[in-house]
Design a protein around this nucleic acid. Structure first.
Lengths: 191, 191
DNA sequence: GTCTATAATTCGATAGAC
DNA sequence: GTCTATCGAATTATAGAC
């Protein structure tokens, strides 16, 4: 059986609280209350509120960059690469939905220099996706379209997915979700 | 010529500031500084910081509901209705990008009872879109697919667009954007 | 309407005993 | 590691003179 230490519980519950109320809205007192101890105890686990946010964001951010880089290093075609990106994105989101939610909604609350570090990484990530799409259009695997808008559309199709794995509702099968999203991105809603 | 009163300037600059830094992060001092007067003066124009957020959100929210309802009352087919929704959504976003950004990112900062009022309206809006999609699948205009995921995908394809009209870059032609987004939603990226 | 001054509260973080 | 107590800073909002 998996042991849940008090420290693990702290990071787990803090993450959920930040997702629920937003980073700025959550107070150290909120966190302490949820864990049923005093605010001062929080500083046994983390140096500051900012450090907590940085920890969550750069952890999940690293995983996304890492998995993207592995896909890009392969010899798959652009279309196959995009499908792999969709697949790993959904798998990762299903595994860590709360961190993914923070990645989407809370990165603005980082402070310099971490904020710049993060946004630079974000740009790099998006440009890599953009390059795959551009290559796919060039090679005739995708239809001709505005590359920038295609990139935004592609990314926005994946960005909301955490919502299916936070809430208390029954979680959708990631493989079924992958099929649905993949079909939407490649063939759209029309017949 | 259009007259810009100090009051108009206040609402305009406050809106941009809230978009840039986030509602919780913006202080009354920030707003006063941007407008080059003292924090106390803000209360000549608005009762509280919360009231400011409510004003922006319910203003743009009403416009979206109103235009959606007009489209739904028409005798157009589901596919034509979705195209009109895309069209009016982009037009409205191009006209009021900063309020649209708040609609997407800041509604969580509403307090009860306004928060519930807002989220109920959001649900109603999304369910109406969902019904159009369901009808379109039923009538065979759209391919068979998971209705809930289709609805999320459709909405997420429109949600990021404010980003093209805030920033300082050259604004994209709304009609061109409409064509690109519409093609993505109905035919996807594939050939 | 604009200012100075400040009330009232809240928050992140620390000190220090046990 | 957990507590009590509290500091120091920041914030919304108000009072009241001009």
């Amino acid at each position: 059986m998996k042991q849940t230490t008090k420290k693990e519980k702290f990071f787990e519950e803090s993450l959920k609280l930040i997702h629920e109320k937003g980073f700025k809205a959550v107070t150290m007192r909120d966190i302490a209350q949820r864990l049923d101890f005093e605010p001062a105890n929080i500083y046994n686990y983390i140096d500051s509120k900012q450090a907590l946010l940085e920890l969550y964001l750069f952890d999940i951010s690293y995983e996304f960059h890492d998995s993207l880089n592995n896909i890009l290093k392969s010899s798959y075609s652009p279309e196959e690469k995009l499908k792999l990106i969709i697949s790993t994105h959904i798998q990762l989101t299903a595994k860590k939905p709360y961190k993914m939610a923070l990645l989407v909604n809370e990165w603005r609350n980082l402070k310099e220099p971490k904020l710049t570090e993060f946004t630079e990484g974000k740009k790099v990530y998006e440009n890599k996706i953009r390059d795959v799409i551009a290559k796919g259009i060039e090679e005739g695997q995708f239809r001709s379209m505005d590359i920038e808008i295609a990139t935004y559309s592609f990314l926005s199709s994946l960005r909301w997915i955490y919502d299916k794995y936070t809430g208390s509702e029954s979680k959708i099968n990631p493989f079924e979700l992958e099929k649905q999203i993949s079909d939407f991105i490649f063939t759209g809603m029309g017949k």
